[in-house]
Amino acid sequence: MSHGKKIDDVTGVETTGHVWDGDISELNKPLPRWWLYTFYACILWSIGYWVVYPAWPTINGYTKGVLNYSQREQVQQDIEAWKSGHAKYRTQIAEMSLADIRKNDELFQFSIAGGAALFGENCAGCHGRGAQGGIGYPNLNDDDWLWGGDLEKIHQTIAFGIRSGNPKAHDTAMPHFGTDKILDEAQIRDAANFVRSFSHLDVDQEAAKRGSQIFADNCAACHGDQGKGNQELGAPNLTDAIWLYGNSQEAVMQSIRTGRGGAMPAWSERLDPVAVKMLALFVYSLGGGQAEAASASAPAAGADKQK
């Protein structure tokens, strides 16, 4: 294409110089004025932006701009604002007993919402996003509780953990019947058969009969004569349909052989008291929460102890 201006004969308007099909050319009409002015305004705006806001990277930082604006600080301020907006709930939660919060619709809803977020951040790693648990990690939705499922007990478990090293933690241990040579393999098999017979699983009846004595001698102290467990000791109920480590013959034998004892951190060491309370209320709300056992006798005993 030749350089220099090409003028279209018919209209007298300059063309872009592009020619199609030998004779079709395109008029070079200027941009509409309003468009042009908007464009200039944008350029001015961007210069203003450089002056006012952080814009250019430098070797060891960036130009700060006269406003000294920082998104990070903005977020921090927002979080502070959010916290102070929630302050009235938080002070109430801090002061009230769990049972009273549970009865206060607004506070309960607030706690469940906050607890859900905290759960996702802190608990979901082991218990799963839906609190559905897994092998060795209890399902928190169901109605089976190792250490008790009323509000105070849930709170205590979360606050001090299980075998966490915290002085107030639940801290019991199941003997390693196999590895410590307390029972031999045949006895373990018999005991396992007996344990599984509680929940009418398919067992070797002969072995189960033999196992009943072994159970009475070794296990009943914690799990009870009827295998109903004991929440004081975190000894699970062996008669129900929920098995933390599975209910196959091999899984139960393994439990007897090496003992079981999961661990959970003491969350009061990591989270503030309000957060722990909100978590307790959230876990309680998942569906398995149980009414206070003896609410009439000593309702606030547990709460006082923790304050």
Partner: peptide, 16 residues
């Protein structure tokens, strides 16, 4: 949806 159902100690089921 998470969990879809929960097995209870009596072998029963619960949906939320």
């Amino acid at each position: 949806r998470n969990p879809l159902f929960v097995v209870l100690s009596d072998g029963g089921l619960r949906n939320g």
